[in-house]
Amino acid sequence: MAVGLTLIFGVMRVVNFAHGDMMVWGMYLAFVLSTRAGIDPYVSFVVCAAALFVLGVAVQRGLVDRILAAPHEMQILLMLGVALVLENTALLAFGPEPARVRSPLARLTWDVGPLYVDVARLVTFGLAIVLTLALSLFLFHTERGRLIRAAADNPYGAMVIGTDVRRVYATAFGIGAACVGAAGALVSPILPFQPPTGLSLSVTSFNIVIIGGMGSLLGAFIGGLLVSVAESLGAVFLRPSLKELFSFSLLILILLLRPAGLFGRRAS
């Protein structure tokens, strides 16, 4: 999920506050597909990714494009607005009750010696790695991917060599949203969700991205691991409800000492 955010932020320097809410929509889509059509979320994540891709492109084309030149603050407020709209439409459509997708996989566990491994989590983790790898292959080894990175580095230069920067932005935003959609569908059997979940998901993914480093895929991945390890350790040694304290303290430290993040390039 943080990977998608990294892509959007890294490429366009747009702060997508609607990230978590897009993810919640991915979750609800998986929910609807599994309750109405009986499709397992581990299959339907492809559909969710596609749907969110369309939503991402629409948001980019319709809204973000208009204010790319405006200062950061304006973009934050715009995306906050999008987040509120998405969250409240979810609230209208699905109600405030927590939902959870049932999947036969989620009930399986494997015995590995002294450990119990949750199959659902394992599959989610595996798919996350596959998606991250696929995304980096795309970014580093295809024409389109190179264009995205070029537009990120220097939009003006990219325009000079004949890139349709707006189109590249739309693709990047769409792919970012698609990642979130896939992630949403994949965690929906593990994590119960409700419309307001979106906000805390956004904040968590910002944590991860800042800690890992803006615009670095590896950073996003490692940041994700770091945040979850810090939270789990905090939950073990102190109180479980205090676990978020660790990720936020980590965030404050990183913001002050190394705003570009652990794996990021220096912010310009």
Binding site: V15, P71, H72, E73, I76, V203, F206, I210, F248, L251, I252, L255, L256, P259
Partner: peptide
């Protein structure tokens, strides 16, 4: 900008 937003949120 964005970094200050995150700091205050944190």
């Amino acid at each position: 900008g964005f970094y200050l937003v995150l700091l205050t949120v944190a």
